[in-house]
Design a protein around this nucleic acid. Structure first.
Lengths: 172, 172
DNA sequence: GGAGTGATACTCGGATATCTGGTGTCCGAGTTTTCGCGG
DNA sequence: CCGCGAAAACTCGGACACCAGATATCCGAGTATCACTCC
C-alpha cells in the first residue's frame, strides 16, 4: 500500500499558496522551481487539485494557481482525495460468495464483517486528516521556523507572485 | 492509494484456518478452492504470512498451513503488515530542503509537520486494525450466520483438513 | 508375517513472465499582453 | 497623442511514452506415504 508522491507535492504547494496575498496567483513553473520538482508532472497534480475545487487556475500570462478556499477550510483529506481519489484502499470482492461453500445470499444482506473493519480503520484515518487544515500548518510553521525563513520566502513570493489586475501597483 | 488484493485473501484464509481443530492443517490447494481464487497466487501470500509468523507451514503430503497463534492474539494489523509490508504509505522526501529557498538545516531537526500529520493519521488507522482480531470475526460470524452455514463449512473442513499424525483416527 | 528400503506422490518454496497503474513528458487550446499602425 | 488591431508570449489542459510494483504462473526442494523386497 503506497501513496503517490504527488500528495506530498500537493500539500506543500497548498501551504505555499496559502502564504501569498489574497487574490494573488503563482504559476506552476514557480511552484515547481520552489520545491525542486518536475514542472510537467507537478502540473498534472495541480490540474487534479483544480478539478477538485482546491485550487483555482488563472489562464494566460500573469496567470497561475491560487487557493480556492480559506486555508482554515482546506483539510488534508480534501487534498489527499483530490489527488489520490476518494475510493477506499481496501476493496471487498465478496469472495465469501464464491467457492463451493459460499454463504447464503440472505446472510450477505449485511456487509462483510472483514470489509466493515477495514472501512472502520480507513474512516479513522480520514477523520484524522479531516481535523487538520492547511491553516494549522501555516500557524505551526510561523511558530517554529526562524523569522529569517519567513523573510526569505516572502521575498521569493514577491519576486514570483502575480497580483490580480485590480489596483496593485506592480512591484515589478 | 490502493491495497493489494492479497490482503483480503489472507484475512479470509486466516479466518477459515481459525475454525479448524487445534493442530490440524489445510493445504493451499484447498484454501484456494474454498475461496475460488488462484492457487499459485494465493501460495505467494501464504508464504508471506508464514514468513511473518502468522501461519505455520507443514511440508510433505498431509501437510498444509495452520495458524501460528491463537485467533484472539492475531490482529488485523499483523496480517496486513505481513502481506503489504510495514512501511508507511506516505513517504516524506524532505522537499522542504530542496529548491532555492530551502529551510535551514537547524529547523529540520524537528520532523516535517506535514509528515507528522500523515503519520498521525496512519497511526489511527493502525490502532483500529490492532484492536480487531480474527477471534472477533469468528465470534461475529457465529452470531450472525445461520447454523446451516457452519454445518456446511464444518463438513467441508472435515473433508479437507489434515490432522497431525498424533492420535487422530483418520476419518478417511 | 514383519521390518527395511526404495520409489512415489504430494506439499511448500523461490524464481520467472505479464499487466495495470503511477511516473514523467510532450504538444495543443486559450488568454492577456504588447507592439505597430492608423486616425 | 490616442485608439484599434493583429501578432506574440506565456499560461493551463489533455494526450502520449516509460517504469515499478502488483498480478499470475511455473518448476524445483523437501518430506511423509506407500509398495515392494528381503529376512
Amino acid at each position: 500500500m503506497k501513496m503517490g508522491e504527488g500528495v506530498e507535492w500537493a500539500i506543500h504547494c497548498a501551504t505555499l499558496l496559502a502564504t501569498l496575498p489574497a487574490g494573488a496567483a503563482l504559476p506552476a513553473k514557480s511552484l515547481a522551481e520552489y520545491h525542486g520538482v518536475s514542472e510537467s508532472y507537478l502540473l498534472k497534480h495541480l490540474k487534479a487539485l483544480a478539478a477538485g475545487g482546491i485550487l483555482e487556475s488563472v489562464p494566460g500570462p500573469k496567470g497561475g494557481y491560487r487557493l480556492a478556499r480559506e486555508p482554515d477550510a482546506l483539510t488534508f483529506l480534501d487534498i489527499v482525495e483530490a489527488v489520490e481519489g476518494a475510493a477506499p484502499a481496501f476493496r471487498c470482492t465478496e469472495i465469501r460468495q464464491r467457492g463451493p461453500v459460499r454463504a447464503d445470499p440472505t446472510a450477505c444482506r449485511r456487509p462483510c464483517a472483514i470489509y466493515a473493519i477495514m472501512q472502520e480503520a480507513e474512516e479513522a484515518w480520514r477523520e484524522t486528516l479531516k481535523r487538520r487544515t492547511v491553516g494549522d500548518i501555516l500557524r505551526h510553521l510561523t511558530e517554529t521556523l526562524p523569522p529569517r525563513s519567513h523573510a526569505d520566502t516572502a521575498a521569493w513570493i514577491r519576486e514570483n507572485a502575480r497580483m490580480l489586475p485590480v489596483i496593485g501597483p506592480g512591484s515589478e
